[in-house]
Amino acid sequence: MENQQIIDALQKQFGEEAIYGIGESHGILQVTTSVDNIVPMLHFLYADPVLKFQFLTDLAGIHFPDAVGQELGVIYHVHSLENNVRLWIKAYAPIDRPNFPTITGLYAAANWMEREAFDFYGIIFEGHPNLTRILNVDDMDYHPMRKEYPLEDATRHDKIDELFGR
């Protein structure tokens, strides 16, 4: 199956205005869409008798602090095992309203993936059955993978050694 076939099917179903961007990276097609279109698009890709994107490989959150209005993104890696084609669906939301729809209704695997994205990026998946922190401690009050929390500079000198037991 060619990538063009997927693009044609998506454009036919959702119209050209629903697809914000199309790219290709090392053979994997990537389609950028709006937050509202994620669930219908994934349902369509899942149910289509030819495309059959029925396997959710991964779901990754990402933070672009400089992209005003679309700082937080989610990348859905779906895989059509029958056609052996991978596809990335991307969508972005502003950081002050990082609400995405949940896809746990379609893929049971999305449960912990979405919890992880919530834990590390603060992306809120509406309708998720149990959107709580998963890998970090429960009382953490920030989302550590966001870019405003840089890791410590390995060469800094201002640390008091005895406080760190060195």
Binding site: S25, H26, Q30, T57, D58, A60, I75, H77, R86
Partner: peptide, 18 residues
């Protein structure tokens, strides 16, 4: 600059790197 996904068959399943 680029975006890559590569997966290998790990000991217990598809181990992917995005």
């Amino acid at each position: 600059v680029g975006e890559v996904y590569h997966s290998v068959e790990g000991g217990n399943g598809e181990l992917g790197f995005y």
